[in-house]
Design a protein around this nucleic acid. Structure first.
Lengths: 246, 246
DNA sequence: TAAATAGTGTCTATGAGACATTATGTA
DNA sequence: TACATAATGTCTCATAGACACTATTTA
């Protein structure tokens, strides 16, 4: 049987007769506090990796009914995000990251995980723990995480950090890591937290002024009084993008 | 039952008791010929979308045995690539694109597709058809594809094109779209094919000289005699990267 | 020798990085 | 008034884009 005949052969058969993997969504939920990038971890209550720290996540809800095949991957990610954080649906920037499916990554059965990352505004971050009192959840500095995360979750976190570090320079994702209204210094701190090193104040302001000219941000009423001299506050104009290709 | 209790509840149960989706890999196999970006499509022989054009792909091979859970997603993509093109394993640049899982995208059952894109050197592209004589396969210009592709494959193709258009400016992926040794003009044509518009010859050469200085490319022996004046040929130094995060 | 492409050079605009300087409101 | 931070300005360097120009080999 040639290679091609074999692939055709597979298609002719009812796929339900072949073993299927479990599919989960795992979430790398990030925020910025005190100029540090933090990730939300949950402590597992069951084996495997009992008491170990892991990313929040869960199974994608699938149905056999051809007319209702269950929830989409994006819906599953949104649902898990709401369930694990207690935050309302759509409160965060959410984007698909990568799909991890190495055999053996879950010792129980074959599990393929569609990983997503979410960016949470620092105002909302403190509310997270309250929403899920039953389990241990905690914000960890990405540079001070537990030595070993469950499954391949350390790899997933690293992949997420790599992604946003690359993306922050050309996409307006940092606005999901500052309050609704923010100062230039606050936005600069968010950029620095993501990059892992501070930005020059002067150069960053120049870059910010271009955003102003481009209509990406606008001045907001009032002033922020944290330093000796109060600073202008701004807000993001374009709504946070949440979605999938197409 | 709170939202969080529910997600814990799910984890406590044997996941095999819940419906699982089928998982496939779909491939956007691209090459450049005559300064045009081409995608490999296969004509389906079975319903649904019988006789319709689709991306090559197939089911990920999963096993129940905890000690052998089947092939990885990357392996599945490599295997499908070899099966559908007849090319040897590892002959192409292969990278994960995005995972598509909208309910209803396959009318038969819930199918989640991990999409990959592959870049094939133009030397190898003509060999592809020969390897799979049983089915119709064809290279289509991405701007002249059949009006309707099967499933959501048009969306997948568009996502792939968008990805490489963005990536070609900062990652050395174009070397997978030219022959082993190439002229500056050939590389420029590959860039132009991906971008959908030609690059300025002078500016591109300057950019190319930086690649030379950086040691990314080196001169190769011989000359290419296609024009009146023969041109220097070069080759890529760093081997093509094929892999996954971690 | 003419044609066609290889290859070089120039001018300008833009943005990043490093760093100095001024301005301002509050303790 | 002193101080800390806001806000502005300056210099240099790297790169992109547009485009003019020269060089070389073969038909």
């Amino acid at each position: 049987m040639s290679a091609h005949e074999e692939s055709t052969f597979l298609e002719e058969y009812d796929p339900t007769r072949y073993p299927r993997p479990s599919v989960t969504v795992d979430l790398v939920i990030l925020t910025v506090r005190d100029a540090h990038l933090k990730v939300l971890l949950v402590q597992r209550k069951e084996h495997p990796y009992r008491h170990g720290w892991a990313l929040p996540g869960g199974f994608v809800r699938v149905k056999e009914d051809p007319l209702d095949q269950g929830e989409s991957l994006l819906d599953a990610a949104h649902r898990e995000l709401a369930e694990e954080t207690g935050l309302p649906l759509g409160a965060a920037f959410l984007e698909q990251l990568y799909t991890f499916g190495k055999p053996g990554r879950d010792p129980r059965t074959r599990v393929i995980s569609v990983a997503w990352y979410a960016l949470i505004q620092p105002e909302l971050a403190p509310l997270v723990t309250a929403g899920s009192d039953a389990a241990h959840v905690a914000w960890y500095c990405v540079s001070q995480m537990p030595a070993e995360l469950a499954f391949d979750h350390q790899l997933i976190v690293n992949t997420a950090i790599e992604r946003i570090r690359g993306k922050i320079d050309y996409a307006p994702i940092a606005f999901n890591l500052v309050p609704e209204t923010f100062t230039v210094a606050e936005l600069r701190a968010a950029y620095g937290a993501v990059k892992g090193q501070p930005y020059d104040a002067g150069n960053f302001r120049r870059r910010f002024l271009r955003m102003l000219e481009d209509g990406l941000v606008e001045q907001a009423p009032g002033l922020r009084h944290v330093a000796r001299k109060p600073s202008t506050v701004y807000r993001f104009v374009t709504p946070a993008r949440v979605g999938e290709p197409g």
